[in-house]
Amino acid sequence: MSTPILEFRRVSRSFGEGRAAVPVLRNVDLSVNELEFLCLVGESGCGKTTTGKILSGLLPPTGGRVLFEGQDVSTLKGEAYGRYRRAVQIVHQDPYASLNPTQSIFDILRYPLLRHGFAKNHKQAHTRASELLELVGLTPTADVIGKYPHQLSGGQRQRVSIARALTTQPKVIVADEAVSMVDVSIRISILKTLMKMRETLGLTIVFITHDLALAKYFAWEGRIAVMYLGRVVEVGATRDVTGRPQHPYTKTLLSAIPEPDPDRTRRKEQLSLRSEDVPSLTELPAGCTFHPRCPFFEPGRCDREEPELEAVPRAESDARVACLPLTEDGTLRPYGG
């Protein structure tokens, strides 16, 4: 396989110092392959947003290495570093907070275009900005380009955010909960635009979301990485992770999601957690951090050693999983059963 476009090697990140340090990511290994659609899925506090920020260079890791096209980004200098930062762009969750309210849409697009030399003058910038707006489906562009963010709807603003991310002709777009704040029907059309751009522009997309159904739909050809308390617990092809989930956490998540189908959702089998309390990041349980809640907890095994991502023997799934009973025995036994 070719070199991943972005790669995490044992990446850790904590906030704060000394005793008060909060480990948000711990020794994460993750690769983003060129042109793939990778979903990072997990609940709040799992570290998915921090992962997105580190991937796009907005935040340095406190441990481990981040590789861009095989090179450690902390060793990149000058133009090489600039190339990395331009190549990886992020689209934030909140289209109300991420656009400067005092700038017109044209200003928002013009500054990065001129600054990074993608347009040489005002006229070129205008042409390029119109092209970008058309690309993200904000047509007629002449109506939009002179407006200010508050004159646009949430969905339109999010399209502007995407257009802004595209100004530097990136290779990777990190979309952090990019559609969670807009209405259902608009959500789909924005994501479809993103998918279309992926094909036409040759983009790699890292899609961060808490919505597994959405992840499944859009990353059907891609991969999903499920995160829990600062670690990846299961990563694999979307059809494996959503269709044949292996890790107890993934199984629990999938079983907990209501479905927009009355019969199906009523009949759905539920996996019950042993505890509804999410451990605090500053007082993580020993061993596998999911063990106090896991329906398949094996005392004396799961609470000793922190599991690493490995393949599951004899499984129908190609996913790699961080779960000792699974990776060592290939099977799970219900707790106390």
Partner: peptide, 24 residues
């Protein structure tokens, strides 16, 4: 607390005592 959350070992006893007093 035996998770691999820190790369350094636990702080020496004395500095721990001092930092606790200072942080009270």
């Amino acid at each position: 607390m035996q998770t691999s959350k820190t790369l350094t070992g636990p702080p020496p006893l004395e500095s721990g005592w001092l930092s606790r007093v200072v942080s009270s």
